[in-house]
Design a protein around this nucleic acid. Sequence first.
DNA 1: ACAGGATCCTGGGGGC
DNA 2: TGCCCCCAGGATCCTG
Length: 286
Amino acid sequence: MPELPEVETVVRDLRPHLGGRTVTGLRAGRQRLRRPWSRAWESDLVGQRFGEAARRGKWIVLPLVSGPRLLIHLGMTGQLTVADAAAPVLDHTHLVFALDGGRELRFRDIRRFGSVTLLSGQEELERFFAKSGLGPEPFGLDRRAWRAELASTRRCLKAVLLDQRVVAGVGNIYADESLFEAGLHPGRAANALTAAQAEHLRRAVETVLTRAIDCRGSSIRNYVGGSGLRGGYQEQFRVYGRTGEPCPRCGTAIERQRLAGRSTHYCPRCQRQRRSPARLGPSVVC
DNA sequence: ACAGGATCCTGGGGGC
DNA sequence: TGCCCCCAGGATCCTG
């Protein structure tokens, strides 16, 4: 659920509240997450001070100054917030890291697809990412490598954008929005793109993600940032979740189709299988 | 290599 | 009100 813009927003929200804070305790619920947490974490972490929160793809990295790294994935419904220790603890809160200064870092996840892992240090973190084959960040992608990547597969564009090994951080919403922005049909084979279209798509992904970050991400159901605030980009979706509504560019009804196992939304006129993209409409600012 | 399905979960919404 | 079915920002494993 949370994709790159939502994760980036969480990280930006956490930074000023978490950096420099010392862990004073750990409480955990009974229900298991995607990866099990360990009792030993408490002794590993108590007395340790947090450094600057970071993001890699959809992963949140919370470094401890002395070396260990907390690695967190929000899955579909994960929330990571810093709250006052006195604030009520919501249902489905699975891990609470007590901090000095009367604050708490809380991990809440209704569907429990998320995960929290404690790694020994930067090396183990890098091994973890390497093992999963995590691809490059979408900002400042190498154009040649990107084009070569697309040219190397017959998979459809939707599947390629969702593949975290190709580009890290794009999920279902921003894949659809990026393809609309680029005027490309989600079912189009990646290796059928011209060099110009590949470049169009590369820029569209950057554009859409940047706009979404500027709006603090999208809140459809559960997502909140690190301070508990919702995002605003859902107001600007052009195709995602707009099945049957008029395309903002040409007025044709938006269609929905299952692709790469996911609900996929597109304009059948602006995003044809063959024809080159329509001209991009004016950007909306939130 | 790749598509498609099932799996891990909870909760919301629609239809009856 | 209840029940049943479908749907959901993800990742991973298995089958054909």
